[in-house]
Design a protein around this nucleic acid. Structure first.
Length: 489
RNA sequence: GGCGCCAUAGCCAAGCGGUUAGGCAGCGGAUUGCAAAUCCGUUCAGCCCGGUUCGACUCCGGGUGGCGCCUCCA
């Protein structure tokens, strides 16, 4: 049962406007997001992109939509430099590692999912591989040739940009006639410098190759997304997402191919902004990246998610160790509030209390603010503000201790729904994963400290507390006794 | 060179033509054996120059600075 489906708005890159989201089929959403080219490890840039779309999908589902989320895996056709002249990225890397290209692809596909799982990114419903959809790609290319939008040269097929006047609309560039005074014209078999490859004839030693009506070869990079999106979502579907750096040429080419082939294609385009380091784009080619594996080796996954969601998906996020540290304090705050209220609920009376109504009213207000923020182009930074408001409401209520169990439990459930189900930064345990192994030993040390404290041996008790703090264990003496927790990592 | 985006307090980051964003950090108070956590209070804003307006951080114009795309990249 949708909460407020009519309020949901997205900023559509194609029209450059924010407008209400209206799905093609009521209560159903088809979304396609450009996935990774699997030739190396994923980094924080991928984390921002896929956590961002993860939360968009989670929000759609939270609103009650039935979502089909398709995200491709690119394992063929992605060339190293010029879109039509370079070497296939996978083949190149595989050659250097002396493995089969698809062996390399399989390895990094698994690592990609491993990293995304660790980040709490819910898997797409369908993860189609480009190499597994060659017939679908050939089908579209054939149609484009028949319609006069593509031509064959020496066993390769190129899309004729001149045949598609709308080319350039998405990326907002005027490509009427070649004003490429600066670009050095590479010797090419293309009729027009703007044309791009749909199919490339395979050279002698090319490992990834398939038969086609035009000879042995392999598909171009862009065509996979046109083929696989229509296969699983239909010729027209609701949302197409991807990184801002794919807006041109990749998405521009997708539109040209699909629409020239007669497909209505994506109704709304969402573009995720980039992660920067010292103001510069984080990328594989610049080498200034932190892999997700590295980031998670010394940071809580929830902290990385919270870091991502602290910036709007359309804004760039500058990465630094200190920016991540600052987020951890906030994560601790959210966890403390949820944990405190959960504990308070367990001890509260079952009978309704006088303050319940106003308390639940404040919770509902925060929840409403959260929903309004998410409905407004998935504004997670603003939504987080509402979640922090809710944390304060819970903290205040917990301190007063004059609420019924039912009211407190309801509030905890709401906070878990928003912070957990939607954002994926909170869970019922409200702590981090490493606690399970160390817990018995920390318990013992905390009990030892309590005995010292009871014996008024404060110097020794404080020493123990300090030493535990240095190891990430925070001790809190409360009226109900001493408790402890791990600070966010 | 072309196209586009952004400039908010010590740091990060939102909304909004007039009403506290929020988080982290700092300061004061309550609380505590001392802390921690929490609550209350509080310091610190809107790159520069014009314009519109009763009123602009918010709209418009012009600067300046930064970034992205125009090869590959989420």
């Amino acid at each position: 049962m949708p909460v407020s489906p009519n309020q949901l708005q997205f900023t559509d890159s194609l029209t450059r406007t924010k407008r209400p989201f209206v799905p093609l089929v009521p209560d159903h959403v088809g979304i396609y997001v450009c996935g990774p080219t699997v030739y190396s490890d994923s980094h924080l840039g991928h984390a921002k992109s896929y956590v961002g779309f993860d939360v968009i999908v989670r929000w759609l589902r939270f609103l009650g939509y039935s979502v089909r989320y398709v995200q491709n895996i690119t394992d063929v056709g992605h060339l190293t430099d010029d879109a039509d002249e370079g070497e296939d990225k996978l083949i190149k890397t595989a050659r250097l590692n002396q493995v089969h290209p698809l062996e390399l692809a399989e390895r990094f596909t698994r690592r990609y999912f491993r990293d995304m799982d660790a980040l709490g990114v819910q898997r797409p419903d369908i993860s189609p591989r480009a190499s597994g959809h060659i017939p679908e790609q050939i089908e579209i290319i054939t149609a484009l040739i028949e319609r006069g939008n593509a031509y064959v040269v020496n066993g390769s097929v190129y899309f004729s940009v001149a045949s598609f006047p709308q080319y350039g609309r998405l990326s907002g560039r005027d490509v009427e006639d070649g004003e490429e005074g600066h670009r050095v014209q590479v010797r090419s078999e293309k009729r027009d410098a703007r044309d791009f490859a749909l199919w490339k004839a395979a050279e002698g030693g090319h490992i990834l190759r398939w038969n086609s009506p035009w000879g042995v070869g392999f598909p171009g990079w862009h065509i996979e997304c046109s083929a696989m999106s229509s296969r699983y979502l239909g010729e027209s579907f609701d949302i197409h997402g991807g990184g801002l750096d794919n807006q041109f040429p990749h998405h521009e080419c997708e539109i040209a191919q699909s629409q020239a082939a007669g497909h209505a294609f994506a109704r709304c385009w969402l573009h995720n902004n980039l992660v920067t380091v010292d103001g510069r784009k984080m990328s594989r080619s610049l080498g200034n990246f932190t892999t997700i594996e590295q980031a998670l080796s010394n940071n809580d996954a929830a902290a990385v998610r919270l870091w991502v969601l602290s910036t709007h998906y359309r804004s760039p996020a500058d990465y630094s160790a200190s920016s991540l540290t600052a987020v951890k304090g906030g994560l601790d705050r959210l966890r403390t509030a949820l944990r405190g209220a959960t504990e308070a609920a367990a001890q509260a009376s079952v009978a309704p209390a006088a303050l319940d109504a106003s308390f639940l009213g404040e919770v509902a207000a925060a929840e409403g603010a959260f929903a309004a923020a998410m409905d407004d182009d998935c504004n997670t930074p603003l939504a987080l503000g509402a979640l922090f408001d809710m944390a304060r409401v819970l903290n205040t209520a917990t301190a007063k201790g004059q609420l019924s169990r039912g009211a407190l439990e309801a509030a905890c459930q709401r906070m878990l729904a928003l912070g957990g189900t939607v954002l994926g930064v909170l869970d019922a345990a409200a702590t981090n994963a490493v606690s399970a192994d160390a817990a018995p030993y920390v318990d013992l040390l905390v009990q030892a400290r309590t005995r010292l404290k009871n014996a008024k041996a404060f110097e020794h008790a404080d020493w123990l507390r300090t030493e535990l703090a240095a190891r990430g264990v925070v001790i809190e003496d409360t009226a109900a006794g001493t408790r402890w927790r791990f600070s966010a990592e």
